[in-house]
Simulated assay, not measured.
Amino acid sequence: MELEVKTLDGASAGSITVSDEIFGLDPRVDLIHRVVRWQLAKRQAGTHKSLGRSEVTGTTKKFVRQKGTGGARHGNRKAPQFRGGGKAFGPVVRSHEHDLPKKVRALGLRHALSAKAKASSIIVVDAVNAAEAKTKAVKDRLAKLGLSNALVIDGADVDANFRLAARNIPAIDVLPVQGINVYDIVRRDTLVLTKAAVTALEERFK
């Protein structure tokens, strides 16, 4: 598969041949969905917590006679059915993480890249850099490529000025190639790859 290479200012900079095994697959939504679920579950804090019967403050004194009142038998007011009592089967601090095989994660990433390629939502640029860390200048350059909602993937090292300038632009994410992931690819309209990122991805999946 051949993709056109552009500069950040929107000018043409030739073309690049990319691997069909990474960018030319027939996208499987189920694989992409599994990886996104795994990512979101892994990052969930799991710090939600409610107080149980043994944790709420209150007396343990038996407040009603066992027999003779015509009512139910009760021990103390910390029971879940009373106002101010502990919660029955409430949430506890736990990890929501679940396992997903490495091969499925890698395949999900390839299918996410292929989905963007099939939708013509991939732009390859020769490099992303900025002379100075000015948000307005970078925003104007991205506008020339028609980018308002995009994930920008650079090589191993992202240009410091570009990263600082872009982080204040809404809906624009900048990551090094090591940080590329399915969720960030799916949540942005356009995927912008540098030539260095394409080379690194092809080396990674070789």
Rank of each mutant, 00 (worst) to 15 (best):
S50Q: 13
I123Y: 04
A119S: 10
K49V: 15
S15D: 12
V192Y: 01
V56G: 09
S50K: 15
W38Q: 13
F89T: 01
G24H: 10
K67R: 13
K62G: 06
D140S: 15
G70T: 15
L40S: 01
Q66D: 09
R141Q: 11
T7P: 02
G24M: 04
A165G: 09
T199V: 03
R94S: 03
S50L: 15
D30S: 11
V104R: 00
A106S: 15
D159C: 09
G90V: 10
E4A: 08
A143S: 07
K136P: 03
K136L: 12
R83F: 10
L51W: 05
R83S: 07
Y183I: 01
D140I: 06
V18S: 02
F82S: 02
E4V: 06
A127V: 10
R43E: 10
A143N: 08
A119T: 00
K116T: 00
I172S: 11
E202Q: 13
L8N: 05
S15A: 14
K87M: 10
D20A: 11
H74R: 13
A117K: 09
V104H: 04
L51G: 03
A143Q: 06
T69C: 05
R110V: 00
R188Q: 07
K136F: 01
A130C: 08
P80L: 15
A133I: 06
A117R: 06
G90A: 11
I153H: 07
Q66F: 12
Y183R: 11
R204I: 04
E4Y: 08
K116E: 05
E97L: 13
K136R: 09
I153T: 10
Q39Y: 13
K87I: 12
V128E: 01
A200W: 04
V182K: 04
R141T: 05
L100N: 11
L25H: 03
V18T: 05
V138H: 06
I122Q: 00
L40N: 06
A41D: 05
L193C: 01
F82C: 07
Y183H: 14
S148I: 03
G71K: 15
N168Y: 14
D26C: 03
I172L: 14
N161C: 05
S121K: 15
T194P: 01
V152L: 15
R94C: 09
V64S: 10
L25Y: 05
Q44W: 13
K118C: 10
I122E: 00
R163S: 11
I169E: 06
L113S: 00
Q39F: 11
Q81V: 14
K206V: 06
V198T: 02
L201S: 07
A72H: 10
A143T: 00
K118A: 15
V158W: 02
A119I: 00
G46R: 04
L151Y: 06
A72W: 11
T59S: 14
A41W: 01
V36H: 12
K144G: 01
